[in-house]
């Protein structure tokens, strides 16, 4: 790692000021991605602004059919939260599949979605549930948050405070994990709320996306049979040593059907 100035502000305002005043300030949430990146000298921030001491960025609340998760809430806390397990078990299930136990003990929802790794799990839940991302400046709907490979709608210095998930009628997440990293080679999050169906795909392309044709088919008939034969266009899918684009295209259909079956219980 290159040297940096480590700052650990006690509240969000101080963190935002620290970032604004730094020559090149980098927020650090759980650090499970940014520390490996720093180790490889792929980033050289002048200041690392650690968010770990900001208590009001962590925690889970439920009110009026919405589960609100603080940006610094760890994957373990989401996976084991009685509130999340009761209201959106699919979200707890997804959190329990991220990485490994030690990574889940430090990694956070805010860090995951701000990074927007194309194979990360949380973007699928945020998009698949139609969540809203709250920042220190504004609210951003899921459909506008994830913009491209490792890119989001966040502005420089903008800080995620929490993510609000509407409670669906049914939902589930299925992924085909890379056996070493547990990142999704392809992962599909499905949810149904009344007649509104969302299908979000991660791992397959450069950025999480919604499978519109599957959504239309499932809106009429929320059953795995409804998407039999309905695939996704994998022309631009990731094609790497882990899986070919063709294989990922196939996996998306399989994971989508399994996710619907899982949502139905």
């Amino acid at each position: 790692m290159y040297e940096f100035n480590f700052q650990r502000p006690a509240n969000s305002d101080a963190a935002i000021d620290a970032q604004a005043n730094a020559e090149d300030g980098q927020y650090m949430a759980g650090g499970q991605t940014i520390i490996p990146v720093l180790k490889q000298r792929l980033a050289m921030p002048s200041d690392v602004i650690d968010l770990g001491a900001i208590e009001d960025l962590s925690g889970i609340t439920i009110a009026d059919g919405t589960v609100t998760i603080g940006a610094m809430t760890t994957h373990t806390d989401v996976a084991t939260s009685g509130d999340v397990l009761g209201a959106i078990p699919a979200l707890a299930d997804l959190a329990s599949m991220i990485g490994d136990p030690h990574v889940r003990n430090r990694g956070t929802i805010g860090g995951s979605i701000a990074n927007n790794d194309p194979a990360a799990d949380y973007p699928a839940a945020v998009l698949g549930l139609g969540a809203t991302v709250h920042t220190n400046q504004r609210t951003i709907i899921a459909d506008e948050f994830f913009t491209d490979l490792f890119e989001t709608a966040l502005d420089e210095g903008e800080l995620i405070t929490n993510v609000a998930f509407p409670v669906p009628d049914q939902a589930a997440y299925m992924k085909f994990p890379n056996p070493a990293s547990r990142y999704a080679i392809a992962g599909v999050f499905v949810s149904r709320t009344g007649a509104d169906v969302r299908v979000a795909v991660t791992g397959a392309a450069t950025c999480v996306f919604r499978a519109a044709e599957m959504e239309r088919a499932l809106a009429g008939n929320f059953n795995p049979d409804a998407i039999e034969g309905i695939g996704v266009d994998g022309t631009d899918f990731n094609n790497d040593l882990h899986a070919s684009a063709e294989y990922r295209t196939h996996l998306v259909s399989v994971m989508a059907k399994r996710a619907v079956a899982k949502a139905l219980g």
Binding site: F6, R8, V103, R106
Partner: peptide, 14 residues
């Protein structure tokens, strides 16, 4: 809580 000590800064353990 179990953590990977190669993936956290010493100052995180303050």
């Amino acid at each position: 809580v179990s953590m990977k000590s190669c993936t956290m800064l010493a100052l995180h353990a303050q």
